[in-house]
């Protein structure tokens, strides 16, 4: 994934497809979390309020499934894009500029923790930091478990043609606990880390605009900067 200069001092960090998919997954996931927990905690006042807005339990369930299809389609579109990127554009899916996790990331986790405890310097991140990779892989893999268990719950009659009945219970448990983990982290940790911490406050707009400034790269992704910084002559300010 090449780092193109879109405007002066602005490097393309996310392609239009990735921006679009992120918006779809963001909207879909927020909606899925809200409708899903409204279904599970149907007795709560807020859940009833949301259910009322969407036309009762049936509307809630319909919305949940609609958003699920949309979100899963976004994940699938991304996988197709990866195939296209690898096979047609002959791009690299592994290596320092990619989402592929490496040994450096494991070292960075500990180095970063060490920095937080004032036991060492901040690790020099490349294009994607370890938490960004974690966020990415959590969604990419997690959506499949959510999708498959969701399908079992959506079409239990079909799945029990060849699965025992208690698999529906297990699918529900997996769906529930993964939803709890995902919502607890993606609704809280992800916005804090990506937007609210002092280093990036008030927001890191790169996922929406697709652009990241040289300054931000120097600050947050020095290893990337080492690789892509313009020659001395054209460095500008």
């Amino acid at each position: 994934m090449s780092e193109r200069e879109l405007e002066k001092g602005q490097v393309e960090r996310f392609s239009v497809l990735n921006r679009l998919l992120h918006v779809l997954v963001m909207v879909g996931f927020l909606g899925l979390g809200i409708t899903g927990f409204s279904l599970f905690f149907g007795g709560a006042w807020w859940a009833r309020a949301i259910a009322w807005c969407l036309g009762g339990a049936a509307g809630l369930a319909w919305t949940h499934r609609f958003l699920a299809v949309m979100t899963y389609a976004a994940v699938m579109a991304h996988l197709i894009w990866l195939l296209y990127y690898k096979l047609v554009l002959k791009g690299r899916l592994t290596g320092p500029g990619t989402m592929f996790p490496g040994w450096t990331d494991v070292k960075n986790v500990f180095a970063h923790l060490g920095w937080a405890l004032d036991k060492g310097p901040m690790p020099r991140f490349d294009r994607f930091t370890w938490w960004e990779k974690m966020d990415y892989w959590a969604v990419l893999l997690g959506m499949h478990t959510m999708g498959i268990t969701g399908l079992v719950l959506w079409f239990p009659e079909w799945f029990t043609q060849w699965l025992p009945g208690y698999f529906i219970n297990l699918a529900l448990l997996l769906h529930l606990f993964e939803a709890i983990i995902a919502v607890a982290i993606k609704f809280v940790v992800h916005p804090i880390v990506a937007h609210l911490r002092p280093e990036v406050w008030p927001a890191d707009t790169s996922i929406f605009t697709g652009r990241m400034s040289h300054q931000r790269i120097q600050q947050g992704h020095p290893a990337l900067w080492e690789r892509i910084k313009p020659g001395e002559g054209e460095a500008g300010s």
Binding site: H112, L113, W115, A116, L117, D118, F177, I180, I181, A184, I185, V188, V189, I192, V193, R197, P198, E199
Partner: peptide, 21 residues
């Protein structure tokens, strides 16, 4: 698993925020 994962990330983020502040 849920308690561990959520606990780790919440603790870690808290620590991280403190350090940055």
């Amino acid at each position: 698993l849920a308690v561990c994962v959520v606990g780790f990330f919440y603790g870690h983020t808290f620590l991280w925020m403190l350090r940055e502040i």
